[in-house]
């Protein structure tokens, strides 16, 4: 799973992506009129926000990103994709717990009570969307992990992975826009643009099958 980016030039080449998926959300967070909370709580929130935007960035960190693949070695792109995939999905998986983490440090509800309420608030669309997205994410994670045991053709695998990812990102983004603590209009627009272009990018490749050249690189 390890990512070793030993050459500065790689970072330099990744800069546009970093800007879009780290810089912009940071900027929106800093400029947004969100109530200020303790450093600890803000840090937790920031981690979740960045994790999510980096996950969105996954659409563009694939071997189908020809420009990037040309600049950096294919294997590096894949390494980055995998690294972000595993590490950040784990963070996203843990994020419901992040939300109740502060409850360990006060005298109010116990973390368990808070979590129980969280998991049973079915009348909240945001929670339901989140749960669906969570399931899909689990499926993506498991299928990725056991990819070779599944004995799928590469094409089929790629399609399954891509479509699942699409489904995930749609539900997850709706979840974030519906219930995210930082759900300002600018954040919503940002997410929508990124998701829309990501999906467009993916679909173009899938539907128009213009990826043969890339696959030759394998």
């Amino acid at each position: 799973m390890g990512l070793i980016m030993n050459k500065e030039s790689k970072i330099y080449k990744l800069l546009p992506l970093i800007l879009v998926f780290v810089g912009v959300p940071l900027l929106l967070w800093a400029l947004g009129e969100f109530p200020k909370r303790s450093v600890f709580k803000e840090l937790l929130s920031l981690i979740i926000i960045l994790t999510f935007s980096l996950l969105l960035g996954q659409f563009f960190l694939t071997r189908t990103n020809k420009i990037l693949v040309k600049q950096i070695k294919m294997s590096s792109v894949l390494k980055i994709h995998k690294f972000i995939g595993y590490v950040f999905i784990i963070i996203i998986m843990a994020h419901p717990f992040f939300i109740i983490l502060p409850k360990f440090f006060d005298n109010t509800k116990t973390p368990f009570e808070a979590f129980t309420i969280l998991l049973t608030s079915f009348n909240s669309l945001g929670i339901v969307l989140g749960m669906v997205a969570y399931m899909i994410m689990l499926i993506i994670l498991i299928t990725s992990f056991f990819r070779f045991k599944l004995h799928l053709q590469y094409r089929t695998w790629r399609k399954v992975h891509g479509y699942l990812a699409m489904l995930f990102i749609i539900t997850a983004t709706s979840h974030v826009i519906n219930i995210g603590r930082y759900n300002s209009t600018s954040f919503s627009i940002y997410y929508l643009i990124v998701v829309a272009s990501g999906i467009f990018y993916l679909l173009r490749i899938y539907l128009f099958k213009s990826t043969k050249k890339v696959i030759k690189n394998d």
Partner: peptide, 13 residues
């Protein structure tokens, strides 16, 4: 009371 962000609609408040 200023704002509510990230509400899950549990009605506790």
């Amino acid at each position: 009371i200023v704002s509510i962000n990230g509400c899950i609609g549990c009605e506790e408040c």
